[in-house]
């Protein structure tokens, strides 16, 4: 019954080209991810009718058609600037549907704070040769391509990297959007004994990363609840038992006991 949530027909979201030096080849982009969160609609409780949103002007009170709507930007002094579609059309004029390689770098040089959305890059039939050369070279040199790409009329910063035979375009947040925190706490250097035990705790809890081990407990319970309601019998899922916490005072002791627990298998990977 959740077919609509999980079914994912891949449809190209973008067509354009990759330019790598003077090599230019046509490609298509596909969204690499999907939101599988359960999607609800607003409904009228009384009759189950779908709720529609009608635009109403808060000044004149009249219903407003979408053609009568402009974008409003409030200046710091409170004045309103109305921006029309044709005002911003010019901003996209120079943005070409191109993924332009501007440099190559090591993937570990990209601060993960910057990672944004991912797209799979598919070569058009004529471009398979060029695509494969770029992909294979990135694999061999362990590099990623830093690109500027024109997507939806806007230029975005991104990285092209090989992933299982396919090039992935992953957008980056514009670096100027990264907020520097400036927290005020002194970097207390931790004692040697604590650090040694902490490191052995990290080590004993280390495993190869396999995302499929983990599951979205809430999502599963919600799906179960909807199913139960659809069948007319609302079952109550079982609540999660609280876990033991503590050890805030005696740090070293807590660390030691943690290591013991992990070794004896009493701390599991999946707590939910």
């Amino acid at each position: 019954m959740f077919a609509q949530v999980y079914a994912g027909v891949m449809r190209a979201v973008w067509r354009g080209s990759v330019s790598f030096g003077l090599v230019v080849f046509p490609v298509r982009l596909f969204g690499a991810t999907r939101d599988r969160g359960v999607r609800f609609h607003e409904v009228h409780r009384v009759d189950g009718g779908r709720v529609r949103h009608r635009r109403v002007c808060s000044v004149c009170g009249a219903g407003v058609e979408s053609s009568e709507v402009a974008k409003g930007y409030v200046l710091p002094d409170g004045r309103l600037v109305m921006v029309e579609a044709e005002d911003v059309a010019g901003l996209s004029a120079g943005v070409e549907p191109t993924i332009e390689v501007v440099q190559f770098a090591g993937v570990d040089e990209v601060d993960p704070v910057l990672w944004g959305r991912s797209y799979f890059v598919e070569p058009e039939r004529v471009a398979v040769g060029s695509y494969v050369v770029l992909r294979d070279v990135l694999v061999r040199l362990s590099r990623v391509a830093v690109v500027r790409a024109g997507l939806r009329g806007r230029e975005v910063l991104g990285v092209l990297r090989p992933r299982g035979g396919v090039l992935v375009l992953q957008t980056l947040v514009w670096p100027e959007r990264v907020v520097e925190p400036g927290f005020d706490f002194s970097g207390v250097v931790s004692g040697g004994a604590e650090l040694a035990v902490a490191e052995s705790l990290v080590e004993s809890m280390t495993a190869p990363f396999d995302g499929s081990v983990f599951s979205d407990g809430y999502g599963e319970r919600l799906a179960g609840l909807i199913e139960a309601k659809a069948a007319g019998a609302a079952e109550v899922p079982v609540a999660r038992a609280p876990e033991e916490t503590g050890g805030g005072v005696d740090l070293l002791g807590a660390l030691r006991r943690s290591v013991e627990r992990v070794r004896s298998g009493r701390l599991r990977r999946e707590g939910g």
Partner: peptide
């Protein structure tokens, strides 16, 4: 979103 005519902010009215 604003009403072009008078600059009024658009609100949504929920209708069944």
């Amino acid at each position: 979103q604003v009403h072009r005519e008078d600059g009024g902010r658009i609100r949504y009215k929920r209708v069944c």
